[in-house]
């Protein structure tokens, strides 16, 4: 096997080792790459910054453990942004696994900022029928969720006295690991006129651009980078900013591998052609 052919067939275990190191080392020893804030994240922040004390937002934890690394920093940053300013939160999830995630983040943030369950925030829990939930909330929150996550009647929860339909909330912030943000925008935003902003995985974020350009989603956070940018804007550095170094190095490493493979491919092909020409 020639040198160039070797370049094309690096053992996958070597690649795995390099990827592991590229992710682990920057997480353990941050490099501090500068985070530039994109327009869509600035717009997301603008919507959040416009909220005033006493305003109510709906925060949806539409994801499970698989995409926590990307979406948790967003959800945490949103709570860190709104709770200190006295903005109230109605949280829910359309994913079964989202309940545990939402409970943990809401409880931790409430403890830090001294928020009272039922007064400053409520967790309505999981509803399996996501499309029906989006539409039903536009008609009645209490009929869609007769009880909260802990079985308490929503009629008896103080914050729910202020919320009957989407008209009573300022915006929906959909943190989603799937196309759900699009559906919140289409059904809740399109049919009921509520403002929808979103936080999405990097893969999903690519699909949000048409909604952003059309104003259906006036701001969004795309992947861990979006979370890092938002953390920078609210001056609350967290796992988003910390993860950016690891992501930068990992992306650069993948490109190096792709480049090495292509150099090997190019020169091997040229050598084969020359061999054929020589006969």
């Amino acid at each position: 096997m020639t040198f160039f052919e070797r370049m094309m067939s690096i053992d996958r275990r070597i690649i795995f080792l390099f990827v592991a190191l590229a992710v682990a080392i920057p997480l353990l020893r941050p490099l501090g790459f500068p985070v530039q804030v994109s327009e869509e994240v600035r717009s997301f922040h603008k919507e959040m910054a416009a909220l005033e004390e006493g305003d109510i937002i709906m925060l949806t934890f539409d994801y499970e453990g698989d995409v926590m690394a990307e979406l948790d920093p967003m959800a945490i940053a949103v709570l860190k942004d709104v709770f200190p300013r006295g903005v109230k939160v109605v949280a829910l999830t359309t994913y079964a696994g989202g309940t545990g995630i939402a409970e943990n983040h809401l409880r931790e943030a409430a403890e830090v900022y001294g928020k009272t369950y039922g007064v400053d925030y409520v967790f309505l829990g999981y509803n399996p029928d996501w499309s029906g939930t989006i539409l039903r909330l536009g008609e009645s929150f209490k009929k869609t969720y007769p009880t909260d996550q802990y079985g308490k009647n929503t009629n008896d929860i103080p914050i729910m006295q202020e919320v009957e339909t989407y008209d009573d909330i300022e915006l929906i912030c959909s943190i989603a690991g799937s196309a759900l943000s699009e559906y919140w925008a289409i059904w809740a935003g399109g049919r009921y006129g509520v403002k929808v902003i979103s936080g999405n995985t990097a893969i999903q974020a690519v699909l949000i651009y048409p909604y952003y350009q059309a104003g259906q989603i006036p701001g969004f956070l795309g992947g861990l980078k979006g979370a890092a940018e938002y953390e920078k804007l609210i001056d609350e550095p967290g796992m988003g900013i910390r993860g950016m170094d690891a992501q930068s190095i990992a992306h650069a490493l993948m490109l190096v591998f792709i480049l090495v493979g292509n150099i090997g491919y190019f020169f091997s092909r040229r050598a084969k052609r020359e061999e054929l020409r020589k006969g």
Partner: peptide
């Protein structure tokens, strides 16, 4: 949660190898 995260994070390794 760790199992789901582990399964998803394995993607980084496979994507790196596959894209190479």
């Amino acid at each position: 949660v760790p199992m789901q995260s582990t399964m998803f994070s394995l993607l980084a390794f496979y994507v790196a190898s596959a894209s190479y």
